[in-house]
Every structure is written in structure tokens, then in C-alpha cells.
């Protein structure tokens, strides 16, 4: 399964970089979203993927009965998802604001408008 995901994540990264290189700011946002999803999946894949073994301990037990999926990357990704949302909201509003002030959505033109 990790092999398959390796290819998928590679395509997602490629798509994200391509979108972030566009000059239209809306495409930049799409690229950002792709990038954060790709990064999360990357961590998830590298940690090893296991079916049917959530990192939970049964009631009354001291430790999980069988080997469970690695909880640490999961914890990291969980916060990353929420942070990515916050950053996305921030950048979307920033872009919107820039568009209003500068009056263009072309990143290459934005650099010439020192307002």
C-alpha cells in the first residue's frame, strides 16, 4: 500500500508545485491546499500503513492487545490539518485583500505596485 501511496503523493506534490507556480492568485490557493494534503499524506505513508489497528487501548487494559498503527505521526498530522486550515484562511483573506488594494490577480503585476 505504501508503494501505491508513494506514487499518489508524488503526483499531488507535482500538481501542487505546478499550481503554485501559476500567476493567478486563486490557483496559488488551490496549490497550497494540495500541498498541505500531500504533506500530511507523506508523513502518514512514511510511518507505515496498517489496516484495522487504530492506536486505542481497550477498556481495562494497560496496553493494546496487538501491534497498533504508530500514534505519533497521527498526532502530528492532526495538528497539521488544523493549522493548515488556519494558514489557508489567512492566506485566502490576505490574497483577497491584496486583490482589492492592487486591483489585479496577476502575481507578476502585484510586484510592481508598491502600495
Amino acid at each position: 500500500m505504501e508503494t501505491l501511496m508513494a506514487y499518489v503523493v508524488g503526483v499531488m506534490f507535482a500538481a501542487a508545485v505546478y499550481m503554485m507556480l501559476r500567476r493567478s492568485i486563486v490557483k496559488l490557493v488551490i496549490g497550497l491546499m494540495l500541498l498541505s494534503n500531500a504533506a500530511n499524506l507523506l508523513i502518514f505513508t512514511v510511518a507505515g500503513m496498517k489496516q484495522g489497528a487504530p492506536p486505542l487501548i481497550p477498556e481495562g487494559a494497560e496496553a493494546p492487545a496487538t501491534a497498533v498503527a504508530d500514534p505519533l505521526p497521527q498526532a502530528l498530522i492532526l495538528t497539521a490539518i488544523v493549522i493548515a486550515f488556519g494558514v489557508l484562511a489567512f492566506s485566502v483573506v490576505l490574497i483577497h485583500r491584496a486583490y482589492e488594494v492592487v486591483g489585479t490577480d496577476d502575481l507578476d503585476q502585484m510586484k510592481d505596485t508598491d502600495t
Binding site: 486505542l56 477498556e59 492532526l78 488544523v82
Partner: peptide, 12 residues
């Protein structure tokens, strides 16, 4: 703390 859930999910 015991089952799926927690501050992030509940907050969302």
C-alpha cells in the same frame, strides 16, 4: 482521552 475525539475534533 479514551476514545476518538479530543479538543481539536470537538472544537471543529
Amino acid at each position: 482521552h479514551d476514545e476518538p475525539g479530543g479538543g481539536f475534533i470537538a472544537g471543529l
